[in-house]
């Protein structure tokens, strides 16, 4: 009920309206806008840069001084190497990647299939199915997390990575996003394909899927980010130290024997940089997908 109604048109046609185009932004307004933009930029991105800077500072540089410098005096990657000595970081990255891959694969496959069927095929019970998917959106995930753990445990999957990945492999929201995207396609393309004798898989694969690539990208990006960033669920499911995902494992950098902020900073950068690269590489698709038909996060 809360999430489906966001149907954006970020770049709506500017030429509508009977009046002439608005005058160009004046020089003073432009300057003011850039000043404000830079101010917000410092607030949103500044902390990340500060963390990056801390992670590159060597043991010889005092990071606790009252006048710390933003640029590391002798930049070094030592702290990154030390992270691997303090926690099995490579194993944690592998664990996180496995969970993320399962989550992305499951959502792409099953949300596409279900979204397509509900949007483009008529069948008895279609409305009930759609209603079920919509209904679960009102329920915050944290409410059912205990019962979900009981279910996963009864499958014998407590303290396994499969148990971490399984519940997230199909998200109702993704089914609805794909449903929205498929529903927006004109009916005629299907009809033409039906006349040509195309079967359902052919119509889905050749006709509809290429038209919803943007939404598919949004589903994939967010399934990955969600799985990679998740904390509470793996924290509940996993207990063995060697099975932890990266977010849960990172805590051990700050918790136990060390309290070296350089080390913690390096650890957080290891968890953050892959996501940042992925997002900046795919942000074009993301903003396009947002226009195509839905916002989620």
């Amino acid at each position: 009920m809360t999430t489906t109604d966001v149907r954006p048109q970020v770049h709506a046609d500017k030429s509508d309206g009977p009046l002439k185009r608005r005058p160009e932004v004046s020089g003073r307004e432009k300057l003011l806008r850039y000043v404000l933009l830079l101010f917000v930029l410092v607030i949103t991105v500044g902390p990340f840069l500060w963390q990056l800077s801390t992670s590159l500072k060597g043991a010889g540089e005092d990071i606790y001084t009252a006048t710390p410098s933003f640029i590391p005096k002798q930049p070094t990657l030592d702290n990154y190497a030390k992270v691997a000595e303090a926690i099995p970081v490579w194993r944690y990255i592998g664990n996180s990647l496995l969970v993320a891959a399962l989550t992305v694969g499951g959502n792409i496959l099953f949300a596409t299939a279900a979204g397509y069927a509900i949007a483009r095929l008529r069948f008895r019970g279609r409305r009930v199915v759609l209603g079920l998917f919509l209904g679960t959106l009102v329920l915050p995930g944290e409410v059912t997390i205990i019962a979900q753990y009981v279910t996963v445990r009864s499958f014998g999957l407590a303290d396994t990575l499969a148990g971490v990945a399984l519940p997230g492999m199909v998200a109702a929201l993704n089914v609805l996003l794909m449903y929205n995207a498929f529903r927006a396609l004109p009916q005629e393309v299907d009809e033409a394909a039906i006349v040509d004798g195309a079967t359902v898989p052919q119509r889905l694969w050749r006709v509809s899927l290429p038209a919803v690539r943007g939404t598919l990208a949004v589903v994939a990006i967010f399934a990955f980010i969600q799985a990679w960033d998740d904390f509470l669920w793996p924290l509940i499911v996993l207990t063995s130290p060697e099975k932890l995902t990266l977010t849960v494992g990172l805590q051990y950098l700050s918790g136990t024997f060390t309290q070296d902020q350089r080390l913690i900073a390096a650890g957080t950068m290891i968890a953050f940089i892959p996501i940042a690269i992925l997002f900046s590489a795919l942000q074009r698709y993301f903003f396009k997908g947002v226009e195509e038909g839905g916002v989620k996060g």
Partner: peptide, 9 residues
């Protein structure tokens, strides 16, 4: 970014 990452930051 993960809540853990920004939390530690």
């Amino acid at each position: 970014a993960s809540a853990v990452v920004v939390g530690l930051m």
